[in-house]
Design a protein around this nucleic acid. Structure first.
Lengths: 163, 163
DNA sequence: CTTATTTATATCGTTCACGATGCAAAAGTA
DNA sequence: TACTTTTGCATCGTGAACGATATAAATAAG
């Protein structure tokens, strides 16, 4: 069958795509009561670990583009979770810091990781495989990140050659 | 450290979320020339395997909601890849079928899976781990799917009790 | 010290993704 | 048969996600 491999590829990619979506769905029961989304929760995790960071640092830690993170932060500011102030040394920067509400949410979110872990383990009956999966996913993420940057560099080079 | 586990949870979920996004990005060089997106490519994979399916079947196979798939198909129809006709037995159904252009794209997309596989293997230097990962991801997906449905059922029951 | 380039964000347009809701057809029930 | 419920799809609103573009500030080059 000539086209047989069309089905086989998505073995991995489609499953990653699906697992990620459904996993985010599993956070809903925990995040809805707090009035936040999963990406917003990720931003909070970053800020809980270290408050007062420029947009770029947050984006970088989440492997997101700044044009994704900026509106995210604007919504979070509107929700009273963070505030964004101009940087003092570099006035281009926007320093994102937690508000009282943002700080207090840490306490409310304390048990979410534990709950999610338990849920996943209970649902799948697996734990070892997931632990084993983590460094492999890290390799994939790092590799793809590099690869994307190289594509961008290639494009920039290509663009400069055309001028 | 009381909040330590906050960091640990995302061991898995955050990595799935990130890996899925970056993997989709890796498809860009192959899908952009065809003028399609990754979710559209998935719809085509489903239709290439079996043409003429109702919206619901497609959504189900991709683990997506119909209100995600409907606009997706509308865009694909506008792009001339599929056509949507009313079902004959059940007139509520919309039967999605490939156009000539949609069928022909299969040939152009033939090598994508192979390219992606090679790229991932080359980037990570891993292959075995990914093969091993697949059934675990399947378990996770199936489990989360069940779980989400149960949440929905619970909500419906809860709603009915309140009336 | 100008001018050119890079950098940090922001804005805009398009495409998902999904909860909530609407609607008409089909299926089930009285 | 008349009524209720379910089902299949569509629409709407909101929040990502990202490419392309814009803008002002910082940095580098001349």
């Amino acid at each position: 069958m000539e086209y047989e491999q069309l089905k086989l590829d998505n073995q991995l990619c489609f499953r990653l795509y699906t697992a990620a979506r459904l996993t985010m769905g599993a956070y809903h029961p925990y995040l809805d009561p707090l009035g936040i989304t999963y990406p917003q929760y990720l931003v909070l995790l970053v800020l809980w670990e270290q408050d007062k960071q420029p947009v770029n640092d947050i984006a970088h830690k989440l492997f997101l583009e700044t044009n994704t993170v900026t509106p995210l932060l604007q919504r979070m500011e509107k929700a009273g979770l963070v505030k964004r102030t101009k940087g003092k040394e570099d006035t281009r920067q926007r320093i994102v810091s937690l508000t009282k509400k943002g700080i207090e949410m840490r306490e409310q979110a304390k048990h979410i990781p534990e709950c999610l872990s338990n849920e996943i383990i209970q649902i799948t009956g697996e734990e070892e495989e997931f632990v084993r999966m983590i460094p492999t996913l890290d390799k994939l993420i790092e590799g793809l990140k590099q690869n994307n940057q190289q594509s961008t560099i290639k494009q920039i080079n290509n663009q400069q050659l055309n001028n």
